[in-house]
């Protein structure tokens, strides 16, 4: 429950930065998908029911915050989680290449899945926008993964500290 709340809080913070600071600094097509990076990280480090539920909640949060189609991000992010959890059995998330390349690939996959769904709804949208988003997401992924790792380490070290018990 605590870890879910931590991820939820981080996700809300990232979404607020995305809707305010990022909009002022970056062009629209270069705004990274930070929630995807979080799910990518979860696919390596939380391959459990907890990870699945956190992914579902993050997807719902992303759609509710942005005003998107509720359920669509949950669906695409869960697909990413499944694929990443499979990938985690082959490689570890310790090299820059895996972080950047893996995130870019997953971002393109997520974009493609979303595109197919929206085209199915007969919406005239451009496919090419998934590529600049994948690039910006990949560039920022090492930083976000670092933040997530440090956050987990911080809370893990707090948990392992012996509690003071009065005499």
């Amino acid at each position: 429950m605590k870890k879910t709340l931590i991820y939820f809080t981080l996700a809300v913070l990232f979404l607020i930065i995305e809707s305010t600071l990022a909009q002022a600094v970056l062009p629209p097509l270069l705004i990274p998908d930070v929630i995807l990076i979080m799910v990518f990280y979860l696919g390596f480090h939380r391959v459990s029911i907890e990870g699945v539920l956190i992914t579902f909640i993050l997807g719902y949060l992303a759609d509710a915050f942005a005003g998107g189609i509720i359920g669509l991000s949950s669906f695409t992010l869960l697909l990413i989680f499944i694929l990443t959890s499979r990938l985690s059995k082959i490689v570890a998330l310790n090299s820059l290449l895996i972080k950047i390349g893996g995130t870019a690939f997953m971002s393109i996959l997520k974009g493609t899945a979303t595109y197919i769904f929206l085209r199915f709804l007969n919406q005239e949208i451009q496919f090419y926008i998934i590529f600049p988003i994948a690039v910006s997401t990949a560039v920022i992924s090492p930083l976000v993964i670092n933040v997530l790792q440090k956050t987990e380490l911080y809370f893990a070290s707090r948990k392992s500290e012996p509690r003071y018990t009065p005499p």
Partner: peptide, 13 residues
């Protein structure tokens, strides 16, 4: 569980 939630999400969407 992931697949079940995927189907649920798709249905909601």
């Amino acid at each position: 569980t992931s697949l079940a939630l995927c189907i649920l999400s798709l249905q909601i969407a």
